[in-house]
Amino acid sequence: MQAVKITEKVYWVGAIDWNIRDFHGYSTKRGTTYNAYLVLGEKPTLIDTVKKEFYGEMMARIKSVIDPKKIKIIISNHSEMDHSGALPQAVAAIEPEEVYVSAMGMKDITAQFHQELKLKTVKTGDKIDVGGDTISFVEARMLHWPDSMFSYLEKENVLFTNDVFGMHYATSKLFDDENEERMWLYEAEKYYANIVLPYSDIVLRFLDQVKKMGLAPRIIAPDHGFVWRKDPAKIVNLYAKWAAQAPKNKAVIVYDTMWGSTEKMAVQIADALREGGTEVKQLSMHACHRSDIATELLDASALIVGSPVLNSGIFPSLADVLCYLKGLRKKGLVGATFGSYGWSPAPIDELGKMLETMGVQVVAPAVKSLFVPDETVLKNCRELGLTVSKEVAKKLQ
């Protein structure tokens, strides 16, 4: 296992997880990386660790550069277990002079490991001398945990950003200029939509704060995905765009079906939306993962949800995805509902109430079909699609 040189003083010593396919209910079809960084100098410094299972890989990469016992400082920018899981083992093996965390990091790591790691807290504006260079700290609370912070290696002009500006993307090509944009852009967007989206207002304020501080790093080194060395401004600009939640003329139809009736309704709604000039994504829960739906919704203006009735309730896959989307708090959506039933249509009415609790503006009555939709029901579906398309156009004026 070899470290990867980033600058004359900075090495990547992380791990590549090629096989992970689920990350807290988020579908990671391309795996991920757990990035850790070694800063050389009079006081060699390890910035973040890796998931516990990859401790050996991280240590082997460190050993390819220096004896781990020579590391004097460990910095934990984020206490989530995919970055701090190997921290207790690393502290035991390295025996560093200091381990730095944010104040909330102190609380979280203590609660997770229940052992004495001799942690020291730092806050925005604090600096430490690592011998020949200085690391300064910027707290990034709720991006995306309360403990999150950035570490900035001043002379080398490298900003270590924990989960911010990252993506779940396993690659042996560890720099932005080595990866094709068509391969990584969707994964970066998906990461934002599924992890960072609820904190978009904080993202905008934080980007403004960093700008006012005069930080313009030549390299951005996140804890997932690759390192931004050629064009770090690209991912910063993408975050600003996604955080603004500026929608386009696009509707997402999310549905499930038992005997095909709800799907017939979805097809008519989708066709009417296209007729009205609205881009459509028709996504069946039989074929799509909740995290892919969240990604499609990132730049959408409308969410239309359809469900059959099962056991006097909505179909379980719809309850799952709506619970998930509610937590992501996407703003500015209009919406509508539809579905088929055999005895009682009441659960379909519940869909509308669920959308309203998510902050979605319901703009049309639910379309309901007793068993298989007839021509009247299908006509009502088309009218629903056209109504939503018109409402989307109004919002975009």
Rank of each mutant, 00 (worst) to 15 (best):
D17W: 03
R21C: 06
H24S: 14
K29C: 06
R30F: 14
T33L: 04
K43A: 03
K43M: 05
T49V: 13
Y55T: 12
G56Q: 12
M59C: 07
I66M: 05
P68R: 03
K72D: 05
K72E: 05
I74G: 01
S76H: 02
S79P: 10
P88D: 02
E97P: 05
V99D: 01
S102P: 08
G105I: 09
M106R: 11
D108I: 12
H114L: 13
L119P: 01
K123Y: 08
D126R: 08
K127P: 04
D133Y: 02
I135A: 06
F137D: 03
F137P: 07
W145F: 15
P146D: 13
L153S: 02
T161V: 13
M167H: 03
H168I: 10
S172F: 15
L174T: 04
F175E: 01
W184G: 01
Y186P: 02
A188M: 04
K190T: 02
Y191R: 01
V210H: 00
K211V: 04
L215M: 05
I220G: 00
W228E: 00
W228L: 01
K234I: 04
I235K: 02
N237F: 09
W242A: 06
A244Y: 10
Q245S: 15
Q245A: 15
G260W: 11
K264M: 15
A272Y: 02
R274L: 15
G277I: 15
L283R: 06
C288D: 10
T295F: 04
T295R: 11
L298F: 04
G306L: 06
P308Q: 07
L310S: 10
G313K: 13
P316K: 08
K331G: 09
G335I: 08
F338P: 01
G342F: 09
G342D: 07
P345T: 11
A346R: 14
P347Q: 06
E350Y: 13
L351N: 01
V360T: 09
P365M: 11
A366P: 08
A366R: 07
V367P: 00
F371L: 14
D374M: 04
D374Y: 01
L386A: 12
K395N: 15
K395S: 14
Q397I: 15
